[in-house]
Design a protein around this nucleic acid. Structure first.
Lengths: 167, 167
DNA sequence: CGCCATTCAGTTGTGCACAATTTAATTGTG
DNA sequence: CACAATTAAATTGTGCACAACTGAATGGCG
């Protein structure tokens, strides 16, 4: 229980009740925004036959080519428990190919099939539609992105601190 | 993680390929931030025996008291498909009580048990820990919240436009 | 060299999100 | 009043997220 109090100058006058309401606001907002994004992607990606997380995996493969499952997971912050069934579905859909690495038999290399490579052409029109849907210009998007990344780093660090078996 | 690539002032000069990369950045960031938040809440809420979505439901009930399932769903943007099993688990945990409305037999009223009311005392210390973990002050949180809400509204409107059966 | 801790992918189990459907109650309209 | 349309909750089915665990392969170290 070694929580750093982080004395915020502006929070002095707030009671715990106010915190509870403020907290409600921020977690509601983030939760809602995340799901709204997922909802729009769901509609737009329906033509491609991809879900939102599947689209993220395809983006990684389009950019980096063949990768071991581990590396894909590092790019997306996902573990094998999520990726294994997801990749199996992409393989069933014919977009992705999986094979054991010869160099390291523990590792499985994930690569694109011809069909997977071809799908990139369809995907190229997705970002413009998403971008237009946000109503934000590039500067706003970049600014929001940097704030979210900063938030993510802080939250990850804090979660690590809070974890009981953290020595 | 990676630094901002070529912060061009306008979208004019961007090709579709650039869009695809930019898009990757923003959807990665939002996805990651959302899950980082979930991860921290998971750690902090473990003491209370609540998941993050369950905590959101409890916040609504602490603030508004007894409500029909429909109203809870409106506050959280969730439907009965998500809420029914979630509320059943809260009921099993002894925090929540469900009963058919006498006025409208279709409706089910969700209320807090004594135990559910009592849990609020434990929950009061959660927001301060979350807030401290973000490393953001109140002004930053409020600013981020308003941007996210604006984004959510835009995305919802766009998803509606994109829906095929939208007249 | 041989053993053991580590690493990687996969599996299992729990819970959330959401679409589509089902059932029952209510409301609106002729 | 009767009956069709609507509404509320629950159920079913798919997919994602993550913790905990399994099993196989690897690499380090005595």
């Amino acid at each position: 229980m070694t929580t750093t109090p982080a004395p915020d100058s502006a929070m002095e006058g707030l009671r715990e009740e106010d915190y509870l309401r403020l907290d409600q606001q921020i977690c509601f907002s983030l939760h809602a925004a995340s799901r709204a994004f997922g909802g729009l992607y769901r509609v737009i990606l329906k033509d491609l036959g991809l879900t939102y997380p599947q689209y993220l995996v395809m983006l990684v493969l389009w950019e980096h080519g063949e990768l071991p499952v581990k590396k894909v997971g590092e790019h997306l912050r996902l573990d094998s428990g999520t990726l294994s069934p997801l990749l199996k579905r992409l393989e069933t859909a014919g977009l992705v190919r999986r094979e054991r690495s010869a160099r390291d038999e523990r590792s499985v290399l994930v690569g694109l099939t011809d069909e997977g490579v071809a799908l990139r052409e369809q995907a190229l029109r997705v970002p413009r539609r998403i971008s237009a849907a946000t109503g934000f210009d590039v500067a706003e998007i970049l600014d929001l992105r940097s704030r979210l990344d900063k938030l993510t780093d802080a939250l990850d660090a804090a979660a690590l601190e809070e974890t009981p078996d953290h020595e």
